[in-house]
């Protein structure tokens, strides 16, 4: 399992990366995250929505309501230009942390899954 703090820190780049591949709605985003992390990353599902709400407020995503095939209203999220820039910044930071860790640990990462 990934610790709570790390999971919280990674939420933003994770969501933005998923949205970079195209607009999406909350339920699908969560399914994608579960799928990608193989269950390593788990929040209470509801906790995603306040984060999305925060991203919208910060201007990283925009939203629009669309009618689904089942006739249900869904809120779709799209990444904005500001969001893309933010994502690039995040990626650089994550990668630099990653490369430092890699140098430190060499090719023998001390973890077992």
């Amino acid at each position: 399992m990934i610790s709570k703090n790390l999971a919280a820190a990674s939420t933003k780049p994770l969501i933005l990366t998923i949205l970079r591949g195209g607009e999406n709605y909350g339920y699908q985003i969560i399914q994608r995250v579960k799928e990608l992390s193989g269950g390593q990353l788990e929040w209470a599902d509801g906790m995603l929505y306040p984060v999305l709400h925060k991203l919208e407020k910060d201007g990283f995503v925009s939203t629009s309501w669309k009618l689904s095939d089942e006739g249900r209203r869904r809120k779709y999220y799209q990444i904005t230009d500001l969001g893309r820039k933010e994502l690039e910044k995040d990626m650089k930071q994550w990668m630099s942390v990653h490369s430092v860790m890699l140098k430190l640990w060499g090719n023998n990462p001390a973890f077992e899954s």
């Binding site: 709605y25 909350g26 339920y27 509801g46 929505y49 249900r72 809120k75």
Partner: peptide
């Protein structure tokens, strides 16, 4: 709005 989104989820 938030509640509707949660409901749809």
């Amino acid at each position: 709005g938030y509640i509707e989104e949660l409901e749809s989820h």
